[in-house]
């Protein structure tokens, strides 16, 4: 095909997809409030938040531990082990916390949302809801999306604290950095305006994006087993790449 035609076709496709996603998001937002389904939200928070907790805490601890290990060996050369807490804290809070949490949650919960909605569509459960005059956007999609948006900052914060604990365990308990100095290092270097607010905002944005990507792919999947598997794969791939790309631009804009 003529590359210009190809580019044009691709552009039309991408713009179309954005349009459909936006319209889907707006419809879901409207449906989420009429009526607001607290019970369903709790159910999905359990599925998405609580059941991601172990993997988040464990990964956070190990990531923090490896930061402690690497940071220590680098800093010890200059006799600056006291900066270990500062280094681990800044890396975790600004970058790794929200990003790794988003990647893990995309793989753990985003894929499950997409597969769940796609298979509900394939087995006519969504049509069944419509037949009961229940809007599936409000009953299925919105609780999933809201739970994802709520859970992401909470999980990210827990990941960061777990990581700081991991860094502490390796740095102070195994390698001998003074525990008080580790903690002081964290406290002095971290500020709410520069680091914590940005970190929470990042996690929230990732939550919104992953929620949208996973529910959209689940909802629009074709009604067969292939559709379910495609929805899952697309969610994980697109969700992860989006997280990384958006993270770069957020960091660039936030620090300027």
């Amino acid at each position: 095909m003529n590359p210009v035609i190809g580019l044009g076709a691709w552009t039309v496709k991408v713009i179309g997809a954005f349009g459909r996603m936006t319209s889907f998001a707006v419809q879901t937002a409207v449906a989420s409030m009429r009526p607001f389904r607290g019970r369903r939200l709790v159910e999905e928070l359990y599925r998405i938040g609580v059941r991601s907790l172990v993997i988040i805490l464990l990964s956070g601890f190990v990531v923090g531990g490896v930061l402690g290990l690497q940071g220590y060996t680098s800093l010890a050369r200059f006799g600056a082990e006291d900066l270990l807490g500062s280094g681990v804290a800044l890396i975790l809070i600004r970058e790794l916390g929200p990003v790794v949490t988003s990647l893990l949650v995309t793989g753990r919960a985003g894929s499950s949302i997409a597969a769940g909605i796609a298979s509900m569509n394939a087995t006519e459960q969504l049509d069944g809801l419509r037949m009961m005059s229940v809007n599936p956007l409000g009953f299925v999609v919105a609780p999933n999306a809201l739970a994802m948006i709520l859970a992401m900052p909470l999980l990210s914060a827990l990941f960061i604290l777990s990581g700081l604990l991991g860094g502490y365990t390796v740095g102070s308990q195994l390698l001998g950095v003074d525990p008080g100095r580790y903690l002081t290092g964290i406290e002095t270097v971290t500020t709410f305006e520069d680091d914590v607010a940005g970190s929470l905002l990042k996690a929230l944005i990732f939550g919104v994006l992953v929620a949208l990507i996973s529910t959209y792919h689940g909802y629009t999947a074709s009604r067969n087993a292939q559709g379910v598997s495609d929805a899952t794969t697309n969610t994980v791939v697109i969700g992860s790449v989006t997280t990384l790309v958006v993270n770069y631009f957020f960091t660039a804009l936030w620090s300027s």
């Binding site: 006519e124 049509d127 069944g128």
Partner: peptide, 10 residues
């Protein structure tokens, strides 16, 4: 409507 596979919510 009675769906083919029941369409019960799993």
């Amino acid at each position: 409507m009675l769906f083919q596979a029941g369409a019960l919510l799993d």
